[in-house]
Design a protein around this nucleic acid. Structure first.
Length: 514
DNA sequence: TTCGTAATAT
DNA sequence: AATATTACGA
């Protein structure tokens, strides 16, 4: 049905290949269109990346290739490539006036199959059909289980192998087929690259974490030759990662309770007035992760689609104007328990209090005096609440002033709330950026909603299981645990699941090895 | 049957 | 180290 299949089937030169051309510059767009026409392609043009994306989404299988400018006002070409790569399996060619290798590299890493420098010559466009053929060929290829007898796995590093695969795509087909026919002595081994992992996550997301079972995931992923066992194994690992995160959050939450205790020791009586939050009325986001602010335009899908390692220090993590330290410092990823951010205070649980606990001070912070620092913040917080004259009863209903970081309603009878404390997020009164720090772009929000693969914010994923359900499948062991629910945490999960070598794979690289 | 988990193998 | 396999109870 698609042209690419026709190409394959009939072994014909791809007349009428359907190309979507994207460029915000009208002149360039015209030229491009003309040239493409001359190549006998069927051309659709648009000057907006967003429009392009919509066109592609609305017309699945109606295009064979996308050729897009890099510099566009509404969305840069890299982003477009990334999204297209994630949502559909179309070859994308990038087009730009920059010939800077950095851009080229970036384009390719984001999944572009080619990078053309303006002005484009028709000779180059004449050849772009090859990408379509190659892509469709690879689509089949990647579903083939390789039982290669050559023991490349031993000496070769993944990255190396990946490169080789890519380079030799064409020549390798016969080889692979031979190997397959030769009899499958050894079973294939799946390498969970980011791309594959993406699909996994998208599937998990689709059914909700709660309902994510191997069989369903497998169906949704729709990857040939992947078995239920493969998925099950991966799911097991995924859950392990979640649990780990959860434990960390727990630890953090416990530390929070120490602060609470401390504040009362310090005689900050006023603090107590502001809010006993009914226990059990809300589920709690635990610990530092809770406070991590996640920019709305970061989507789950986006997180994985980048071939570059996630940089936690990209400025995205802001808490009411206060940039948080690198995630690594906070917890988990580095597994470094000596790296405690806060000193421990042993204490008994006191009655539940709101705790403005989100001020994170990394270890080694100059001049940090836990007691003074925290008490001062508590005072600030308290007086601010007072001066704003926010009635106690309104705390819940004034998320603008005090953003309550809670979600869901816990009505679970099994829920052990004795350990729980409700926290609120205080405003960073000192920061001139406080107001904008928390803002997000509604457009991006919208855009995010429209994404086909339903990429979602991490927070959404964690809540996706609806209602009071917890992230953790099923079991009792987590009942009195705090929810490791926020964004940074999932980031951690993701990254903790992806090894460096896996990260080095690019889209389309994932392979089956013996 | 499938699932989740832990143990164990590769 | 990562993934697969297996065993077993639900």
């Amino acid at each position: 049905m698609t042209v690419e299949q026709d190409i394959d089937a009939m072994d014909q030169f791809p007349l009428g290949m359907r190309v979507l051309a994207v460029d915000d510059d009208q002149t360039c767009l015209r030229i491009l269109e003309t040239l493409l026409h001359r190549c006998q392609y069927h051309v659709t043009t648009t000057d907006k990346a967003q429009t392009a994306l919509e066109l592609l989404r609305e017309n699945k299988n109606k295009f064979d290739l996308v050729i897009s400018d890099v510099d566009m006002p509404d969305m840069d070409g890299f982003k477009l490539v990334e999204l297209v790569g994630l949502e559909m399996d179309l070859p994308v060619i990038m087009l730009s006036a920059h010939s800077d290798p950095k851009y080229v590299m970036k384009g390719v890493k984001h999944g572009a199959c080619d990078y053309l420098v303006k002005p484009v010559r028709i000779e180059e466009l004449k050849n772009i059909w090859q990408h379509v053929v190659r892509k469709s060929k690879f689509k089949k290829m990647k579903s083939v289980v390789t039982t290669s007898g050559e023991s490349e796995g031993n000496s070769d590093q993944n990255g190396v192998r990946a490169n080789r695969k890519r380079k030799d795509q064409l020549e390798e087909e016969d080889e692979e087929q031979d190997e397959q026919e030769r009899g499958n002595e050894k079973k294939a081994r799946v390498i969970w690259t980011r791309e594959l992992h993406n699909k996994f996550l998208a599937a998990v997301d689709h059914v909700g974490v709660k309902n994510a079972v191997p069989k369903k995931i497998l169906e949704l992923m729709n990857v040939d030759n992947l078995t239920r066992e493969n998925v099950g194994s991966h799911l097991q690992k995924f859950r392990l990662a979640l649990k780990k995160i959860n434990n960390e959050a727990n630890q953090q939450a416990n530390m929070d309770s120490h602060f609470k205790q401390m504040s009362s020791l310090k005689g900050l009586g006023s603090f107590h007035h502001y809010r006993p939050i009914p226990l059990g009325s809300s589920q709690f986001h635990g610990g530092a992760a809770t406070m991590r602010h996640y920019p709305s335009n970061r989507t789950l899908a986006g997180m994985f689609s980048s071939s570059l390692p996630c940089n936690h220090n990209d400025g995205g993590y802001m808490l009411q104007g206060m940039p948080l330290p690198p995630l690594e410092t906070l917890h988990i990823a580095n597994n470094n328990n000596n790296n405690k951010a806060f000193p421990s205070f042993t204490s008994q649980q006191s009655s539940p209090l709101v705790s403005p606990n989100n001020h994170f001070v990394p270890e080694g912070h100059q001049g940090f005096s836990p007691r003074l620092e925290i008490n001062k913040r508590l005072e600030d917080w308290s007086s601010a609440v007072l001066s704003n004259n926010i009635p106690q009863s309104n705390l819940h209903s004034k998320p603008d002033a005090l953003e309550w970081n809670m979600f869901g309603n816990s009505t679970s009878p099994n829920l052990d709330t004795t350990n729980q404390t409700s926290f609120c997020r205080d405003t960073d009164f000192g920061s001139p950026n406080a107001a904008q720090a928390d803002s997000f772009d509604p457009l991006q929000m919208k855009q995010q909603h429209e994404n086909i693969l339903s990429p979602m914010t991490v927070a959404q994923l964690l809540r996706s299981s609806s209602g009071n359900e917890r992230l953790f499948m099923g079991q009792q062991k987590l009942e009195n645990g705090f929810m490791a629910s926020d964004t940074g945490s999932l980031d951690d999960i993701v990254n903790s699941m992806m090894t460096q070598s896996q990260a080095e794979f690019s889209e389309g690289d994932w392979v089956w090895v013996a």
